[in-house]
């Protein structure tokens, strides 16, 4: 799916800086940010920055990708739980895809996620790398 620049730019706080929200009542952090706490209905919240380490909860290795990711396949995709309990999905890179396991410790790093053809923008964001890397 072609990402036009405003759509890409709008997500910079999350993709570049891991900005999340923490709700006052529940103390729960959500990523990406949202206006209403789904558990309490609370709307009072503050911006927090996510921790950059966590553990893989589940993963897959995509061998048949969509058109935007053809050059990368096979690539690993995982959901990790960060040290503050928030969860997010990202690719796992800089390691052998067959070495990835549930429970593996990972760190978030700033990487290029998509590069479009002819005249599209480059889209940057975060990927997981092995924590020890």
């Amino acid at each position: 799916m072609t990402m036009f620049s405003a759509r890409n730019w709008r997500e910079y706080p999350q993709r570049y800086r891991l900005e999340a929200v923490k709700f006052k009542k529940s103390g729960k952090t959500y990523f990406p940010p949202r206006q209403v706490d789904p558990e309490t209905g609370d709307t009072e919240r503050e911006m927090v920055v996510l921790p950059d380490t966590g553990k893989i909860l589940t993963y897959t290795v995509i061998r048949t990708p969509g058109p935007m990711f053809k050059d990368l396949a096979p690539y690993a995709l995982a959901i990790a739980e960060l040290t503050d309990g928030t969860r997010l999905m990202a690719q796992v890179t800089d390691c052998d895809v067959d070495a990835i396991k549930i429970g593996m410790e990972v760190r978030l790093e700033f990487r290029r996620v998509q590069s479009e053809g002819a005249s599209g923008v480059l889209s940057y964001g975060y990927k997981f790398v092995p924590k020890w890397y």
Binding site: M1, P32, I62, P65, G66, M68, M89, V113
Partner: peptide
């Protein structure tokens, strides 16, 4: 924005 952007597919 938070799944497909990162390369998720439905089988994935």
């Amino acid at each position: 924005e938070y799944e497909v952007f990162h390369g998720a597919t439905f089988p994935g």
